[in-house]
């Protein structure tokens, strides 16, 4: 089975899942109580005006007809109009999604690059002071909600120490870089605007850190647990019986088997951050999609709800496919799956 075949098969399955998800969220958004048209127009609107809007939104049709209208729009890349912003939901998502993606990617990077090594160190020096400090640190990350971290980090690093900007994605002195990916750091880099890049990074650090700490603690604990399990295996004793170096055992011979179960959970944690980003985005005035989605739900902004959920769902599926590919890469039993001798 080639890599291309694998991606093709998984993408086909992902599309089936997305169709199912779209039906589910489409129905759920419409059966929760409250009339979206009335909420959008407010209490002063006349019944005629409300009826007109309901008609325009096809809300007076049956659910299958409504879904068919939605699919026809989707085929054109049109997710309908937002009842709140009065703009195309597609445009709203194009504006807000890159901001969230940038935040989540940075948080994911911190989660893996700090959390996993922390877990390796804790496992390598199991039951020593080093291990205890690492575990305490990881536990603090896990048990403290991200918005608490957000407020705490903002107070400490921005207000008290004045090291980092308080909120937003970019200082007012800079214009956003020409849009390519919509992620300011990446776009500034592409445009060669070094000072804007540095400014965007400074704005990114605090929210990314606040969002990452829980996942980071989780990654450290997970890595430690799985490494500890592998350390009890006979092949580690065997490696020692043949004088393999301890650091080589930790970073190679114990790490790879331990990463197989760890990766799957890390992938899920990463995808979950997309939704959890809401509180961090709210604290740091980060114009992201998570916040957009939550407001859409509160205002019963039908098209925006469906659009946001579909984007998050698609991200989940993409992350899953990537994780499965990585797992297959480090686990030869999945990659090869057959005997030769």
């Amino acid at each position: 089975m080639g890599v291309a075949g694998f991606i093709l098969r998984r993408s086909a399955a992902a599309i089936v899942v997305l169709v199912g998800l779209s039906i589910l969220i489409f129905v759920v958004a419409r059966i929760i109580p409250g009339d979206p048209a009335r909420m959008a127009l407010g209490s002063v609107a006349t019944p005629e005006q409300v009826e007109k809007l309901r008609n325009r939104l096809h809300l007076d049709e049956s659910l299958p007809i409504q879904y068919w209208e939605f699919i026809k729009g989707l085929a054109r890349g049109d997710l309908g109009e937002s009842l709140v912003t009065r703009r195309s939901v597609s445009l709203d998502l194009i504006d807000t999604f890159p901001a969230t993606l940038e935040l989540v990617l940075a948080a994911g990077l911190i989660m893996v690059l700090v959390g996993v090594p922390l877990g390796i160190i804790a496992a390598r020096y199991r039951d020593t002071a080093v291990d205890n400090v690492a575990r305490l640190f990881a536990l603090l990350g896990v048990v403290t909600p991200s918005f608490v971290w957000a407020v705490f980090l903002m107070l400490l690093l921005s207000f008290v120490l004045g090291l980092l900007p308080v909120a937003g994605r970019l200082s007012e002195a800079f214009d956003p870089p020409p849009m390519v990916s919509g992620m300011y750091t990446l776009d500034a880099l592409i445009a060669g605007q070094w000072r804007a890049f540095w400014d965007a990074i400074q704005h990114l650090i605090l929210p990314a850190l606040a969002l990452a700490l829980a996942g980071m603690g989780q990654a450290a604990r997970l890595t430690r647990t799985n490494m500890a399990e592998v350390y009890g295996r006979q092949y580690i004793e065997m490696a020692r019986a043949f004088a393999f170096r301890e650091h080589e055992i930790a970073l190679k011979y114990a790490l790879r088997p331990a990463m197989i179960p760890t990766l799957t959970i890390l992938g899920l944690d990463f995808a979950v951050m997309l939704g959890n980003a809401f509180l961090v985005e709210a604290v740091f005035v980060w114009p992201g999609m998570a916040k957009y989605g939550v407001f859409a739900i509160l205002r019963k902004d039908l098209n925006a709800i469906v659009g946001t959920v579909l984007v998050i769902g698609a991200m989940f599926l993409i992350v899953n496919i990537i994780v499965d590919m990585l797992t297959a890469y480090i686990n030869p039993q999945i990659r090869l799956g057959r005997r030769v001798a």
Partner: peptide, 16 residues
């Protein structure tokens, strides 16, 4: 040199 009991457990499954 040491020979372990169970060859399937004594070899690391993720390396050749």
């Amino acid at each position: 040199g040491m020979i372990f009991q169970d060859p399937t457990a004594a070899l690391n499954p993720t390396f050749t």
